[in-house]
Design a protein around this nucleic acid. Structure first.
Lengths: 149, 149
DNA sequence: GATAAAGTTTACGTAAACGTAAAGTATTTG
DNA sequence: CAAATACTTTACGTTTACGTAAACTTTATC
């Protein structure tokens, strides 16, 4: 028994936690091309893969038309036309540059989140210290210091 | 002379390659809070930093309201309220998880682009070989092999 | 054989993030 | 001082990516 060949719309919806509306919309935009049994959609494992790619693309900030463009380009490379192959290579290298930019952005964001977190923890530690001073005041003078800030 | 304190809307627009419309929209959504000289906006270097963060957020797939939420949270931590500090820390850790997901997504995408590129290059190499065989056919038999695929 | 469950089409609605005039004010420059 | 330049507000338009409801058909279940 192989991996399973076909899927219903609700199976895919459940597996990837999207609405059937979204899946139908992706078909409408020609990102998915299910066959039909009667009027019911039947999704292939290729469709399943593409749905996964669509959702990953979204998480990376790609629009549906960007993703569709990649799908179409890839399909055309399978026809083995030289021009298409070169176009695909060019597109790939542009996408790579985009991913590099994103990796930079993420790295910067992580650094800034590090310093932000550190400051938060410092501020919290300060608050704890004040609490203790409140509970066990060694010196009576300036017990209202916190309010003076 | 320090870094420069204030900026006009068009200065920022030019520097970050966005329209003035976008900048005004960000102010409308309360992500930027320029002061005014008369009715003209005057942006501080803090605004400049925030604009940079907004744009980076966009490249990372963040919505404006997500970014605004972070700005607001950060501002509130400066008031030193314990509850706000804890909320900020929690939010930061959720964002970190999100960035981890994105890094995974990017890594997967890069791998797939690697194999896609390899296949393209193979296909191109094949085409080159056929061209040479066409030009200098060592054996006459089966010269129409390419057409038979 | 009724009814629920899962599927369908059609179509209007909506939030986000601006684009694009239109019409006016303020400032700079020849 | 006239014309160009930069800025403003108001407001309707547009694209993307679906949400939501209505009305209907097909298949499974009791």
């Amino acid at each position: 028994m192989v991996k399973k060949e076909t899927y219903s719309i609700s199976e895919l919806a459940k597996e990837f936690d999207v609405t059937t509306r979204s899946i139908r919309f992706y078909e409408d935009q020609e990102l998915l091309k299910p066959t039909r049994r009667g009027q019911t959609r039947i999704f292939s494992s290729k469709d399943r893969v593409r749905l996964k790619l669509i959702l990953r693309g979204k998480r990376m900030g790609f629009s549906l038309s960007e993703t569709k463009e990649l799908f179409d380009l890839w399909d055309e490379t399978l026809s083995g036309n030289e021009k298409q192959l070169l176009l695909m290579l060019d597109t790939l290298s542009r996408k790579r540059a985009q991913l590099e930019q994103q990796k930079n952005d993420i790295a910067m964001a992580e650094m800034e989140m590090d310093t932000a977190e550190a400051r938060c923890r410092e501020a919290l530690a300060d608050l704890e210290k004040r609490k203790k001073e409140q509970k066990m005041p060694a010196n009576e003078e300036e017990s209202t210091a916190a309010e003076q800030r």
